[in-house]
Design a protein around this nucleic acid. Structure first.
Length: 582
DNA sequence: GCCGTTTTCGGCCCGACTGTTTTCAGTCG
């Protein structure tokens, strides 16, 4: 990626906007869809799509053909897409804002603009207040009211915030438990959708519930104490907004089709669409109600998802893989990976104590890790130049090594490793001397400062650390904070090649707001031959359990236990490190 | 606009809910 190139996120946004503009313009829906699927494909690429387009290789990405590549190239070289410029002459940006209001889509926004000249949400509000919309075909007083409410509720300018998966899962489990309690015996509520697929963030929570009286479940759902208001509710589906502001969609059904319903509502949309298109070619039609043949005879109902997939000629696909990233072919061919699970992990190799910025002692962390079933735990407090007022000087680290060794003597049932999370300085050097590092059992090297350097400089800095024989793993390799801070610039291809060469592990950091490496990057790294550690980066006892989120990212990256070093017994782990390789 | 065991053209999942309608269009997932 050259300096100044648009990022994949920039390109994806631009393609989405062209799609939205074409939709306003009345283009056939499949063309509109092509822009949005192309945008998603760009978002999921591990390589710089600007660079790929320059090399004429962007068409290798699924959903990108010659036309989209040409537009990506124009954006890369000239900063704009000619088609977008042309469309914007007909459709002002304010009209796009109108389409983003809930309940308003392209057709209504177009109607408001062409009939009444409404070109912004402010003008729309005025028209609704003056009851000027109700005279349009297909619009009435209730829609005016709904528009005013939507404008009233809108916070900021990008509507509803996405929330971290960890928070969404907690909310989903709370709602599911409340719904089961409200409905009584025989009703089963199960979180589905992106929460179940363990994506990084979720826009809303999807849930299914099955029981003898589906309509009664929907009614009970809308009346839960957790619910602020129902946005829609019918016999078979409802959408509510919780007091916390999170939206929850529910689909209900009878127990006999629990598998169909769960498969449908777990998604993703891309997975389901691709799965159904394939099924149609074989004369089968798949929906949440069941599977039926071409001649519309009876519906086949399935109580489990495994049966649904089997009926379609596929192995069971774990929810984390259902993103239309090759899992359908693999399920058909019997080549799905055996994914790593939390139970495979034998230890945690990145944790903090009160020696730096953690909140618990060595003994407390050890006890908590032992309770989780860990066989080993590395204590890796921040190093000398951490710079947050809680650095560990070389002398303090020597003392800390002694303390860990003493604790290890004292505490039975878990092996404690004396380690450190060492800073990678801007010049690529580490901030402890090698003879001190050599006394440690485990060394994580991370970047915590000077994020703004060029991709070339940051990559050289990272390669220096990877090349250091005493570095066992690179912590949170891209430095991103989900929704808060983008990754620093890095030539990941070079980083992965180097890590594969030296045997230095790359971390999948399990903190729910890091998940770093991301699933996309981790999958690319794995294909380059990299091996990983999944660490909690816990700063207190409770967050040791965050490992589940690192495991989720690893699973979404198609990783098996064989790619994860801390799935190994301690002796084998030690033997696998660069320093053991000589 | 993309794609190919229908292969360079013709087809591209499936259904719920709302508000507006007297049978359906628009939106959403």
């Amino acid at each position: 990626m050259a300096e100044g190139d648009p990022t994949n996120a920039d390109i994806a946004r631009a393609l989405d906007e062209v799609g939205d503009l074409y939709e306003l313009d009345g283009a056939v829906s499949h063309r509109v869809l092509a822009y949005h699927t192309g945008a998603q494909s760009v978002r999921e690429s591990s390589a710089s799509v600007a660079q790929l387009a320059r090399e004429g290789r962007a068409t290798e990405l699924p959903g990108i053909g010659a036309t989209l590549q040409e537009k990506i190239l124009a954006l890369t070289e000239n900063g704009e897409i000619p088609a977008a410029v042309e469309l914007h002459k007909r459709w002002p940006a304010g009209v796009l804002d109108v389409t983003r209001l809930p309940g308003i889509g392209a057709k209504r926004a177009r109607l408001f603009y062409t009939e009444l000249g409404i070109a912004s949400t402010d003008e729309l509000r005025a028209a609704a207040e003056n009851q000027a919309l109700r005279h349009l075909k297909g619009v009435g007083p209730k829609m005016e009211e709904a528009i005013l409410q939507a404008l009233e509720r809108r916070t900021g300018d990008d509507g509803r915030e996405r929330i971290l998966a960890s928070r969404a899962l907690a909310i989903a489990e709370e709602v599911a438990a409340a719904l089961e309690a409200a409905c009584g015996k025989g009703v089963r509520a199960t979180p589905a959708g992106s929460v179940r697929r363990r994506t990084e963030t979720v826009a809303d929570i999807d849930m299914i519930a099955t029981g003898p009286d589906p309509a009664a479940i929907t009614r009970a759902f809308c009346e839960l104490d957790l619910v602020e208001r129902a946005e829609s509710s019918g016999e078979l589906a409802a959408r509510v907004v919780l007091h916390s502001g999170t939206a929850v969609d529910l689909r209900v059904g009878d127990e006999a089709r629990h598998g169909n319903l769960l498969q449908h509502f777990t998604g993703s949309a891309a997975h389901n669409t691709a799965l159904r298109e394939r099924a149609v070619k074989e004369g089968l039609h798949v929906s949440e109600y069941g599977i039926r043949g071409d001649r519309a005879d009876r519906l086949e109902l399935f109580a489990t998802e495994a049966e649904v997939y089997r009926r379609l000629g596929m192995d069971y696909i774990e929810p984390e893989l259902r993103e239309n990233r090759g899992e359908l072919d693999a399920a058909r061919e019997g080549t799905l990976p055996a994914l790593v699970s939390l139970a495979d992990l034998r230890g945690d190799l990145h944790t903090h104590t009160t020696a730096s910025d953690g909140q618990a002692s060595i003994a407390e962390m050890a006890a908590a890790a032992k309770a989780l079933g860990h066989e080993y735990l590395a204590i890796t407090d921040h190093s000398a130049t951490h710079g947050f007022g809680n650095d560990v000087s070389p002398e303090q680290l020597e003392r800390q090594i002694e303390l860990v060794r003493e604790a290890n003597e004292r505490i039975e049932g878990i092996e404690l490793l004396a380690g450190s999370e060492v800073n990678i300085l801007p010049d690529g050097k580490l901030d402890y001397a090698d003879d001190l590092l050599a006394r440690l059992d485990w060394v994580v090297a991370s970047i915590h400062t000077a994020f703004k350097a060029s991709a070339r400089a940051m990559t050289d800095r990272m390669l220096a650390a990877i090349g250091h024989p005493l570095v066992d793993a690179i912590g949170h390799p891209t430095g991103r904070l989900i929704g808060k801070r983008p990754p620093y610039e890095l030539e990941l291809g070079r980083v992965f090649a180097a890590a594969a060469e030296t045997g230095t592990a790359l971390e999948i950091n399990s903190s729910p707001n890091r998940r770093d490496l991301s699933e996309i990057d981790a999958r690319a790294a794995s294909q380059a031959g990299v091996r990983f550690v999944i660490d909690s980066d816990a700063h207190r006892e409770a967050t040791l359990a965050n490992l589940q989120w690192g495991v989720a990212t690893a699973r979404r990256a198609w990783l098996g236990a064989d790619a994860i070093l801390n799935a190994l017994p301690l002796d084998a782990l030690r033997a696998s490190r660069p320093r053991a390789r000589g």
